[in-house]
């Protein structure tokens, strides 16, 4: 019978080293981001049920629990964005005979893209919904 060697590692392995703690914090961003995605999904359900149900969902966003979730999710999304973009040039390596791109350019392009995407989205929301202008 096979008797595989079981490496002994304490469950608290990640608490001792700051780099491991940062890694676990980065992975933990998934939890608030999942809960926020479920909040958005609830918005789609409420939207499909009509105007009144959608207005109820909008009021959920403003409850203390809703604001707390969105606040934690915003912090998690910012940490995710910074750590994700920093990893992109290590994973997206464009280094073949036909095409070579300096990793610094890959990093810069994704930094600019993430800035443009996020600021553009907030800008579009403000432009569409500014009280003086529209809905």
């Amino acid at each position: 019978m096979r008797k595989p060697w079981q490496p002994q590692q304490p469950r608290s392995w990640w608490l001792r080293n700051p780099a491991y703690r940062r890694y676990m914090l980065r992975e933990a961003t998934a939890l608030p981001l999942l809960l926020y995605t479920l909040l958005l999904l609830a918005g789609i359900v409420q939207f499909s049920r009509g105007e009144a149900a959608f207005a109820t969902w909008l009021s959920w966003l403003q409850t203390p629990a809703g604001l707390l979730l969105q606040g934690i999710a915003l912090a998690a999304a910012l940490l995710h964005a910074v750590t994700w973009v920093a990893l992109v040039p290590k994973i997206l390596v464009i280094d073949s005979d036909r095409l070579r791109i300096d990793p610094r350019h890959v990093l810069r392009a994704h930094q600019l893209g993430a800035l443009a995407g996020n600021l553009g989205l907030v800008g579009a929301t403000l432009w569409l919904l500014w009280p003086a202008g529209g809905a």
Partner: peptide, 20 residues
């Protein structure tokens, strides 16, 4: 999530003040 996540969450946070 990196390209639009923070912007999306900031937008829904702003909805309460923006939507009359």
């Amino acid at each position: 999530l990196a390209f639009i996540g923070p912007g999306l969450i900031a937008s829904t946070l702003l909805l309460g003040w923006l939507v009359q």
